[in-house]
Design a protein around this nucleic acid. Structure first.
Lengths: 193, 193
DNA sequence: GTCTATACGATGATAGAC
DNA sequence: GTCTATCATCGTATAGAC
């Protein structure tokens, strides 16, 4: 709480990204691309182009760094829920489409937070659980059936699990064709009498 | 490679479980119940009831410990595939049923290995990818359709993901009723004309 | 605001006694 | 086979210069 005021904490691209944002970016990158262990203060500082001391000016501790990531995630998530609601092909297709491995910001943050969760960070686990609740709630609103909604969410979870844990080569869904086929399958689930 | 000969490396319950097995159990427990970071040599030794030096007699390094876990996993997995084939209600139901959070040996090892995979251990990632290939192969053999098989596997993956990452309270499927309903849903997927 | 230097604890691993 | 030192390394955090 003694860190300097954040520039509204949004992830808008400032002309020259603030040191604060660069540090959070670096932390997320190291978490997502490598591991929780690799994301040491020194490594984060180096990647962000500041010294360890410089980093610790902006974030007084590693915990503060985690809080920073979690704050940005909350904003990203809110935006994603908006997009989900407004998606032209509907929330279900949107959800599945965005669960597929790609390299957008949201996916990177989620993988980063998943790494923190596995490293016993209760805040990270809670944030993931909360995100899941929000997605599930949207899905339930459109598909009607509770179990079908849960099944769709499990499929999305499975895709993230694979992204986060397995060698990149091991992708279950590869292209747009696979995705369309999956969406077709899932819609059949919803088509209950 | 300089560690003493393993007693056939199977997980059979010796009259008094060998020190070697107790150490591997302790390592898996700490990984699965806590985190990769919590599974230090000292913590593993304490849980297994030996000293750090005693542990290092059986496993010359932490890497050797990982190898030990991976070896036992290979055996457990082979057994699971057998059970899957012989399951009275069929491989699909078996797969979904055993993907649900419980506390059997196999699940514990998988969560343990998932933690190692997230900690950048390539051997662990490879082992998980290999297990997935084996399960998928069994599923494809019975459901016929490639994408349906993959979808079923993603559902199973999603359940594991939730077990490994989220607070225990956040279970998507709670009881036998949920499971039956899910199996029903999935069977509808397979029922293609 | 950012840097260097340093204290301090924890962890993986070695050496050698019993 | 198992134990008790002991060591080197690394990671977090503090203090204080610029």
């Amino acid at each position: 709480m003694s860190s300097p005021a954040a520039p509204a904490s949004t992830s808008s691209a400032a002309p020259s990204r603030s040191a604060r944002d660069r540090i959070l970016d670096a932390f997320e990158d190291l978490l997502a691309e490598q591991s929780e262990r690799a994301a040491t203060l020194e490594a984060v500082a180096a990647r962000a182009g500041v010294s360890k001391g410089g980093l610790l000016y902006h974030f007084a501790s590693k915990d503060a760094l985690v809080d920073g990531v979690l704050e940005r995630f909350a904003a990203d998530l809110a935006q994603d829920i908006e997009h989900m609601r407004a998606a032209p092909d509907g929330p279900v297709a949107y959800f599945l489409r965005t669960s597929i491995p790609s390299d957008n910001r949201l996916e990177r943050v989620i993988v980063a937070i998943a790494r923190l969760a596995q490293a016993s960070d209760a805040r990270a686990s809670d944030a993931l659980a909360d995100a899941q609740r929000q997605w599930l709630s949207e899905l339930e609103a459109v598909v009607g059936d509770r179990m079908v909604a849960r099944t769709i969410m499990l499929i999305g979870d499975g895709m993230y699990y694979n992204t986060a844990l397995l060698p990149a080569a091991n992708t279950v869904l590869r292209d747009e064709t696979d995705l369309q086929e999956l969406i077709g399958l899932v819609e059949r689930l919803s088509a209950r009498d």
